[in-house]
Write a protein that binds this DNA or RNA. Sequence first.
DNA 1: AGACTTAATTTACAATGTGTAAGATAATTT
DNA 2: AAATTATCTTACACATTGTAAATTAAGTCT
Lengths: 201, 201
Amino acid sequence: MTDPTKPRTDPRILRTRQLLKDAFIDLMQEMDIEKISVNKIAERATINRVTFYLHYRDIPDMMEKMADEMVEEWQEVLNKGVYDQATDREIHWLRLVSLLEHIAEHAKFYKVILASKRTPVIFTDRLKRLLVDAITTRIESQGNDSYLVRAGIQKDIAIWYGSSALIGTIVSWLRSDMRYTPQFLAKQFALLVSNYGRDEE
Amino acid sequence: MTDPTKPRTDPRILRTRQLLKDAFIDLMQEMDIEKISVNKIAERATINRVTFYLHYRDIPDMMEKMADEMVEEWQEVLNKGVYDQATDREIHWLRLVSLLEHIAEHAKFYKVILASKRTPVIFTDRLKRLLVDAITTRIESQGNDSYLVRAGIQKDIAIWYGSSALIGTIVSWLRSDMRYTPQFLAKQFALLVSNYGRDEE
DNA sequence: AGACTTAATTTACAATGTGTAAGATAATTT
DNA sequence: AAATTATCTTACACATTGTAAATTAAGTCT
């Protein structure tokens, strides 16, 4: 987890950045994003405004970096599970469950970042790209006799469709205050894609 | 189309608003949304900055109103077709085709509004809500012996899934510069939902 | 522990953007 | 042609932005 090649970051930097990010999430809960200024973030974080600029070029840059971190976390979550003698299908299901659990654990963050009225699309876009890559390698590995090909469905369109459905459903789920458990929702996904999921084993 | 109850708007108002909206779309192509100011919009529109405030409270308010208009247009497109002796399924397909054709016709607008990096989610959200309503009434009308119920799929989740998939695929299609024709894409949608589309006739 | 290095703070400044007001001018309606 | 209404002009107070230079505080290294 800790990279020994990098010389280990100054704790003051970590502290400042965390305070700034927390303050930002806080403010996002209270007001629309256009009303958030560097001023307010710094004030809420009890950090001098000038210090903000030592870490981020501006607010969009800050969001960009937060998005990077979010993607990294998803990658960790999706790779950490060790599923020894499980079928491919089980693995995918378990991964989805841990992803949904991760989101539920950090619901405050994700609700604000993905599901508030004026969020820019970068956050969902990043995650979608991650899923597109994951689904792509999975579909490519099936070769040309998959369900998709047999049904006359274009691969790229199926990937657009599936990744959008996944992200979008997660956002709606967040907006509903996670009305279903991660397990239940994952099962529902499995049912919804079962059409072309049939030969993915 | 023209509502005779309303007293007909001053052409100067129409002109000004159109110039402002065009300028905004123009600027969105050139720069990220956070860099767009009332100043720049007014300048590009060759309208005095003060005049902007006679029409919109601020930029978010302007976007809100543009989103309203966009939703109205979609409703018109979706309701205008007269499909006399067509099955339900054919009607849905034809409606989808005209919607995709409408989007293709106004590609410049939709690319900027729905598919650029930093767009706020309000635009896609509004459209999603429209689709959610449409799909909901359709599913509700099927009662309790639909495919969904038989397969053990929760209605609301299916609606989240389907509407997100539709909007998301359209966005990806726009980003790909509409690499497929509206007819072809609509056909692909039909194939992708064919699983629970089977008993919608 | 003390010297060295780096981060955060303080104060300051120019530039840009915001939102509103009051009066003058131009276009539209009646 | 008169009345109405939209736009323009000029002006102002205020917030926000991004940067600079000097100072203080915290962390690192030997």
